[in-house]
Structures are given as structure tokens and as C-alpha cells.
């Protein structure tokens, strides 16, 4: 399971987006959801609601089971309603891992991608410890054999855990 944290808090996100942005939120419902709810249906719905309450135009919130498979993304983009949303949008917020971001960048090159995630490595979902990072792709992290809970990784790296909140 791929472990992803959040780079920005909500205030930084809203400050970054231009007031006339038309926003599409796209999320992965597997690893990103299991990283303390960084992605997934609920996180997508909540972020869309918050942005809309703050006056931004939300053109859609799309959730895929996986966003790291090109063929899955292309199949979804074949759907007319989603294609229209993507063509109408100016900004895309991917609640996905790094590969998901790259897939979006390749498939939807006209959109400005707002990179809100930071993929930190590989891990597992423990029944007692929650999401645990076991292998890091971040050089500054030195991990013990049993890994580190993702919440501690967020603290160590100065990143944010879970979904956007006010």
C-alpha cells in the first residue's frame, strides 16, 4: 500500500487557488483513502463542499477505485459527463499518490494540477497501529524494521495527515 500525506492545509490551498478557478477534485479510493482518509469518497465530497462554501466553482468530484492504472483513467474519461467536466475545469486537485498525479498530468494536460499530496513510501494498514510506513522514498527518514505510524511520519516531515479540514 502506497503511503501519501498532505503538503498543504486547507488555508494554504484556498490561498493558492485563483478566485475564478473552476475546480475538479479527483481521488483514488484505495491507498489514498486508507492513508487516514487523505483521499476517497468522503474526503472528495468534503473538499468539494468546503471549496464551494468558500465561493469557488466546483465542476466535479470524481472517485476512482485506482488512479494509478492508465487504462482505468482512460476508460473513465471516455464517459461524456466526466470529459465535459474535465474540459470545463481550470484546476485539478488530485487526492492520489504521486503516480496518480503523473497519470492526470499526462491525460489532462490542459489542467493546472494542484499537487496537494506527498507520497512518502510503502506501508501497511495495521489493525492496532493504523497506517504504518515501512519503506521510505524520502531520504531524510530512517525507519526501524517495524516501520513508523504515518501520523508520526507527518510530524517528522512537517506534513499533514488525512483529509482537508478547516
Amino acid at each position: 500500500m502506497i503511503m501519501t500525506l498532505r503538503r498543504l492545509d486547507y488555508h494554504a490551498l484556498i490561498a493558492f487557488l485563483p478566485r475564478d478557478a473552476r475546480v475538479l477534485v479527483w481521488s483514488c479510493n484505495t491507498c489514498a483513502r486508507l492513508c487516514n482518509g487523505f483521499g476517497g469518497k468522503e474526503a472528495t465530497k468534503a473538499l468539494c463542499s468546503m471549496l464551494a462554501e468558500d465561493g469557488l466553482e466546483i465542476v466535479g468530484g470524481e472517485v476512482l477505485s485506482v488512479s494509478c492504472f492508465k487504462s482505468v483513467i482512460r476508460k473513465r474519461l471516455d464517459r461524456a459527463d466526466l470529459r465535459m467536466m474535465a474540459e470545463k475545469a481550470t484546476h485539478l486537485i488530485p487526492l492520489t499518490c504521486r503516480t496518480g498525479v503523473e497519470m492526470m498530468r499526462n491525460e489532462l494536460p490542459w489542467l493546472e494540477i494542484v499537487e496537494v499530496g506527498e507520497t512518502v513510501g510503502l506501508g501497511y494498514l495495521s489493525e492496532s497501529r493504523g497506517a504504518v510506513l515501512t519503506n521510505s522514498i524520502v531520504e531524510m527518514l530512517d525507519l526501524p524494521d517495524e516501520g513508523i505510524p504515518l501520523s508520526e511520519v507527518a510530524e517528522d516531515l512537517g506534513l499533514f495527515l488525512g483529509p482537508f479540514e478547516r
Binding site: 506501508g123 501497511y124 495495521s126 504504518v132 515501512t134 517495524e146
Partner: peptide, 12 residues
């Protein structure tokens, strides 16, 4: 499995 799966199984 992968190394994360290994740690998951060892803990379980």
C-alpha cells in the same frame, strides 16, 4: 508478498 506485507503478517 512485499516487505510491507511481511511486516503486516509478522505483526498479525
Amino acid at each position: 508478498a512485499c516487505s510491507s506485507g511481511l511486516i503486516s503478517a509478522k505483526e498479525a
